[in-house]
Design a protein around this nucleic acid. Structure first.
Lengths: 153, 153
DNA sequence: CTCCTTGCAAATTGTTTGCATACCT
DNA sequence: AGGTATGCAAACAATTTGCAAGGAG
């Protein structure tokens, strides 16, 4: 149901640019959609798409992710663990803004989401103070999770 | 003057762990200190250290940066351009907290610092709400800088 | 004298590119 | 048909690792 809407949007945007609607592009987007909430690497996505469509190549996944990102259909996140991660775009995600942040444990590397929209007003302030037009933000907190705090020597 | 303090701290931390004080380690830290405010890649640091100490190897720089990061003497930043960047740790930087953020222009890739300590209270809130102990945060705003806004078609 | 550390080169890992073929429109 | 997309393998770039030799405590 939601998925239909997403696909339709992708098809529109492709047509707009004279690009083609292919199996691979639809599949990558749908995997991202089915796993909304997880932070997936290109390899993760490749593995999942491969289940339905084994002949896909990893390079195509990279090219498609780049494309989806250019079209603002997916978000990129980087936890500094050496690979870029993707999730379904916040524009498609129901919410009007991207207001979920990440708590990253320095010891066990667990990543937890955290919701807050405190930053809206800060964005307005930035625009007025610097002339920089904010489109999106990314906020990460590094520290120790509850479990690791307990285990702390 | 400040540099002495930094070196002393490094020496202490090394001794604490039974590790050795080497030229290379001191030099990497001092380059970072001299360039406080810039966001340097391992390669940048390697080039600068090489001027004083040409026999250093790039691998040593990587190993040293890892070490300094473990010891909380330097901060890591990732602008998603394919390489990790480093700057002198906020603990050493005079301030008590790391409250400078980044405005990243999506068009020209310029990076501008932006200071604000609005997040302190948010950190307290997180600790109470989730049990996650926050050590540091990283906040990036993506958008269009003043110049690129003007040039906008 | 013992272990930690280094430099070098080789190995890894994530990602990109070139090219001939296959596929949308 | 005509140009876009794909799969594969080779190319790349940033970072890591193995190892023998050098240096700090």
């Amino acid at each position: 149901m939601e998925a239909d809407k997403t696909q339709k949007l992708l098809k529109e945007k492709l047509k707009e640019k004279g690009l083609k609607v292919t199996h691979q592009r639809l599949l990558v987007l749908s995997v991202l959609e089915e796993n909304s909430g997880s932070h997936m690497t290109a390899e993760d996505i490749y593995d999942l798409v491969s289940e339905d469509y084994p002949e896909i190549g990893l390079a195509t996944v990279y090219r498609t992710l780049q494309l989806l990102w250019d079209m603002q259909l997916v978000d990129r996140i980087n936890f500094g663990d050496g690979c870029v991660r993707y999730e379904i775009g916040h524009l498609l995600n129901g919410e009007t803004k991207h207001n979920h942040h990440h708590l990253i444990c320095k010891r066990c590397n667990k990543v937890m989401p955290f919701d807050d929209d405190l930053l809206e007003s800060l964005e307005d302030h930035i625009e007025k103070a610097t002339g920089f037009h904010v489109l999106d933000h990314e906020l990460k907190f590094y520290g120790l999770c509850k479990d690791c705090m307990k285990k702390q020597r």
